[in-house]
Design a protein around this nucleic acid. Sequence first.
DNA 1: ACTTCTCCTGCAAACCTTTGCAGCCAACGG
DNA 2: CCGTTGGCTGCAAAGGTTTGCAGGAGAAGT
Lengths: 387, 387
Amino acid sequence: MPATIRDVARASGVHISTVSRTFSAPHLVNPETRNRVLACAEHLGYRPNRAARALITGRTHNIGLIIADIANPFFPPLIKAAESQARQRDYHIFIADTNEDPAAEEDLVHALAKQVDGVLLCSPRMSNSLIEQLSREVPLVVINRQVTGLPAVVMDVGQGARLAVEHLTGLGHRELALLGGPRGSWTNREIRRAATAAARAADASLTVLGPNPPTEGGGIAMAEQVRRTGATAVLAYNDLMAIGLMEGLDSLGLRVPQDISVVGIDDIALSRLTRPKLTTVATPTAAAGRTAVDMLLQHDGSSTARAGRGGGRTSTADDRRTTAQVSLQTELVIRDSTGVGPAASADRPGTAATADRPGAASPARPGPHGHPAPGGATAATPESVAS
Amino acid sequence: MPATIRDVARASGVHISTVSRTFSAPHLVNPETRNRVLACAEHLGYRPNRAARALITGRTHNIGLIIADIANPFFPPLIKAAESQARQRDYHIFIADTNEDPAAEEDLVHALAKQVDGVLLCSPRMSNSLIEQLSREVPLVVINRQVTGLPAVVMDVGQGARLAVEHLTGLGHRELALLGGPRGSWTNREIRRAATAAARAADASLTVLGPNPPTEGGGIAMAEQVRRTGATAVLAYNDLMAIGLMEGLDSLGLRVPQDISVVGIDDIALSRLTRPKLTTVATPTAAAGRTAVDMLLQHDGSSTARAGRGGGRTSTADDRRTTAQVSLQTELVIRDSTGVGPAASADRPGTAATADRPGAASPARPGPHGHPAPGGATAATPESVAS
DNA sequence: ACTTCTCCTGCAAACCTTTGCAGCCAACGG
DNA sequence: CCGTTGGCTGCAAAGGTTTGCAGGAGAAGT
């Protein structure tokens, strides 16, 4: 039913190869002929069959995008940007949601491998070894993690976490908590390392809690534990958890930011809409999506466009040919969920760096539970410095 | 580099056609041979090349999914469900974001047409005529709109809007406002029709405002106008607008729900997280995604699975072969953004159905603007009953 | 023993393009 | 006038798979 190259050839009285060239190498065909062919093609509604083309050229003009969880509001802006960038370069995007299920992920990549020219992998929990194996099957670009030998685009959450901690200590907080994310996440490790370092540099203590599921529920569930640490400020693995935490703190009778400050990471759209509005570390998700497709596509020659967008980029490696790592800067956006710490309101006896009684700093309504913190605030765990 | 059918044939000492049959028609090949072939294939890591297969069978096992705006939180759950359902049936999903740009949409469909077996269209503003033209090029299922002759899955927002209005009038509100969505949206028309009818039935007045962009910003911007209508309760086209509206009302000094009640539509995840939590009409987006791929796939024989999921479904048409319309039920979820209306607190003089002075019902702090409403609250516009 | 049937397998065409190679023609230099 | 060049076009192979058709082997029926 749909017109093929042969129909066009017949209609315009030339050989199919001429029609083919009209589309894929226009300079090789006489302008007059070309116009005639073009006219016929237009008239017949002809579009080259990409599958057939792929069969012979080996290039499908498709990109796979594997996402851990589409419904996580962190991802849609990334997807959107990747799709847009891809389309602009005449590529289409296959999308796949793995539901964080490693088995599904492997199947997926295999199934996709033949149909795409490359895959963008955005799946924090997948094992490194599997990724390496996969990368032998199809060009891969990983997002928000680092795998030796593979091109990657990461967001510099370490820097962001440092900024956040500095912001907090600057406000006078000495007892910090870090609401950790899922085990095995590169981002999580990065945040933890940077946060502990920054806390130590500011002579503040930092309790790290986790691992936790990176969801609103994960935040809600940890509210009680956070309170027990006695921290007056907490940095969460992502905005979703931060928001859940605020929710949980609220039902414990703790006010944000008066009693406790909360900062998230990601700056998802939602964070502007909570009350109080969430202070958070903005990650350039859209830029990451664009950059990732650029990296994938620059590898295969075809596209000559030089990657030049997404400001604030720091190329960490040689731009030669392979395994570039692009790190995108983050920034702290201060809204209403952070406020001055206890040290600012009164210069109490006892140096700030030592652990006080939990809750002593906050004049919160008592709340239903009155337990003292079991072990007091623990010091930062410095052993995680090695990547 | 990747193993082809020929490699497997050579390795297992059979003809390629036997290998082919081993995968696509196993019952035609001797079990013994089959196992040998399977073993070789496994060993070589062979996977049938879907492009080559598509070339000859004409079936790509791909589905296109065209979305107006991926970043709109309404869509991700739909995408996720569609992707999952598709994969379960051994289909992959091409995703495309049109940015609400009609020109992009057309290109997209054309480009996709050859690469997919069908397209799910989720793009409220696209013109009907274009859709019809497209449907001649590739099987289409439209979501949340109705195009004569095309299979569709819609969410029954009309019913939801009715429920919402009844909820509001039941609380004693007599002055309602409807914060309309974008022009040309089927959903918008449906809501409007049902809401006006329900308001009339309850003898309440309803002012419809719009069209507006279906975003948070659209809601914020309309806060002042909403207040001018004097309405004590408002139904918004979607949750995003409702949330924006609450934001705007707040900065006007109006409290929700004490001064004014707000209800949204969609029940996006965000709505559980705002303060106050948003009362809203829950639409079964995930079920819609699943159902849509089922409809698309049941058309082409191959899959024999009977569509039987997504409870609460009402089939509006014959299940014969073509142009079925599936309507999914919605339900009202009552949270904290709606409260009793002024009629409940004091039985003022003047029948409820007539327009009072705007703001008279609310003891709000004055706020910066003191204009009386220009035309007072207008009556419902009944001319939009025809679809 | 001969036909008929069933089961399995091989053959080759077909799907729609791309692309290296060769051929044609006109123009041009000598 | 001949040889060369350059611009354009046709030819045919190739890419990986499916599938109608035919053939072969053995079993079953007569």
